[in-house]
Every structure is written in C-alpha cells, then in structure tokens.
C-alpha cells in the first residue's frame, strides 16, 4: 500500500466498496419494492423500476474497478480487503432497511468476514 501508486490503490479500493455496497442495496431495494407481486409479474415490476438497473450498472462498474484494482495489488490482498464489504453491507442494511442485528446475526457475519480475510492472507 505504500508503493508510489498508494493513493490510486486507496481510491480504487474505496470505489470498490462504494460500488459493491450500492449495487447490493439497489438489488435489495428492487426485491423489496416488488415483494407483493409474484412470478413473471414480479420480474416485470422490477424491470420497470430503476433499482434493478442501478444494481446491474453497479455490477458492471465493479467489474471494471476490480480489474483495475487487481492490476495494482496481488489477488490475495484484494480478497482480504473484500471482506470489509461484508461489514459495510451489514451496516448499510441496518441503517437503510432497518434490518435487525441480533447477537447471533452479528457474530455470524463477523465470523464470515474473518474467514474471507483469512482465506485471502498470503
């Protein structure tokens, strides 16, 4: 991270967290928005609203950001930092959708984030 391109790495990483989180929240908003209809009608409803498309747009942007990020840092470091996304999405779900964070839920999410970080360690 203290290479000459450290600033760029930090910027790309921040972008990755932002885009990944925004994408997941948009998907949740799309699914939440259309939870009253069923089957094909539900998909039609989701396709007619911006949320689903915002989510897909974020996925495409994330793909490019991730590609650029991985060209500057080793994959293991990338995976390691990706575990932060899990915690950010958890907090965002709490703030924006009022999702309950019981002790078991929080423990489970933090364990998974730790596990992802461990897998990513060189």
């Amino acid at each position: 991270m203290n290479a000459p391109s450290g600033g760029l790495v930090a910027l790309l990483w921040t972008l990755n967290v932002v885009v990944d989180t925004a994408g997941q929240l948009a998907f949740k908003a799309a699914a939440h928005d259309a939870h009253e209809s069923d089957g094909l009608q539900r998909w039609r409803h989701m396709a007619s609203r911006p949320w689903l498309w915002l989510g897909i747009g974020c996925y495409i942007a994330e793909f490019l950001v991730w590609l650029a990020f991985l060209s500057l840092v080793p994959l293991s470091e990338g995976v390691l930092l990706g575990s932060i996304n899990i915690v950010v999405v958890m907090l965002a779900g709490r703030l924006l959708f009022g999702e309950r964070l019981s002790r078991m839920r929080t423990a489970g999410i933090l364990l998974i984030a730790t596990g992802v970080a461990l897998v990513g360690l060189p």
Binding site: Q24, L25, F27, K28, A30, A31, H32, A34, H35, R42, M46, L52, N85, I86, V89, M90, L91, A92, G93, R94, F97, E99, R100, L101, R105, G108, I109, I112, A113, G115, V116, V119
Partner: peptide, 25 residues
Amino acid sequence: WMTLLRHAPIGPAFAASHLEIVSVL
C-alpha cells in the same frame, strides 16, 4: 439472488453468499 432478497435481509444474506469461497476452495 433476486428471489432470495425478496425475504432475506441483505446484510446476513450477502455474508452467507460467501460460502462459495469454501466450495471453490
């Protein structure tokens, strides 16, 4: 994923989707 999110809260669901790492490993 879009079907799951109909009921599943995004925080725990997003974390749980990382089980893929174990199966791929």
